[in-house]
Amino acid sequence: MNRRDFLKAAAGGAAVACSGGAQARDNLEPAPEAVGMLFDSTLCVGCKACVSMCKEVNGMPPTLIEGKEAWDWATDLSPQTLNVIKLYKDGEGNVKDQVKDGFAFEKRSCMHCVDPGCVSVCPVTALRRHPVTGIVTFHVDACIGCRTCTTGCPYNVPHFDYDDPFGQIYKCEMCNQEGVSRIDNGQITGCAEACPTGATLFGSRVALLEEAKRRMALKPGDTYNYPMGDVRKPGSYHEKATPVYEKHIWGEKEAGGTNVMHISAVPFDKLGMPPLPERSYASISEGVQHTLYSFMALPAVALIGLSYVVRKNLDASEGETDVSDDEGKEEEKS
């Protein structure tokens, strides 16, 4: 094999690698009975009942300031906080749901992606998408702690507990992890149950999407009866004038969609949502990976070819001893 052939082969390999189209998969579809939540930022009053309930249900300690237990001081998702309410504030920040000089609340928790990046990148399947409910679950027994899930999550949700020498990943599992199993027992998530205004609404992804679209279609100012708790069988309603919604349901399409969807009166980039295309990064990554490593065919062919070439060249150099010989055998002398 001369250099030309090698370069040709390399270029061929590169072409396969670049095309990506042949083996690329589309975004995953939502799980058949996907459950999720709808967070309506305009309904959120910032009471943090969901944060409190989440800690109670998941048995997590409050985040302390300077070690003093006066208040749960969670500022962001962390190994002790699977759900947190954050504040968008501009200027004076005294008008709710207003971009300029206003403020708005935003819930941060696992979005339970339809095509989860964390599941796609985890080398040891410690993160799995439940085949029926679509809940993204974590399995500590498999985890090696490489934190690729954190890098592969568009929302930076999985958090590793660095302060524990035997730490693990923490993320919201929709209150359905072993020992809690609220969904399996017919209950709803803690945060949706605690929410006093229905800002966090539990339900099937389909029903929630319908509800979100219904709200989008409302005329601002009209009163609407906002369901609270479970969208399928609301415990009560919250009557309120419709705000001026952004016509954008976060999670309907972003990176393949999410089971936890957000709607708001403030653009989502202000609320810290990432710039995501509709195509999931997981699908692109897997497409490239499966193009190159489908049944290990390409590597196997390459190995056979390389073995042949190497052996031929070794023989030609009469290599009797080790990886030997500096007697150049061809072309220009040294």
């Binding site: 094999m1 070439v309 150099s317 990886v323 010989d325 072309e331």
Partner: peptide, 9 residues
């Protein structure tokens, strides 16, 4: 070994 440039051995 692939491009067979033994002089670099």
């Amino acid at each position: 070994y692939v491009l067979n440039k033994g002089k670099y051995h």
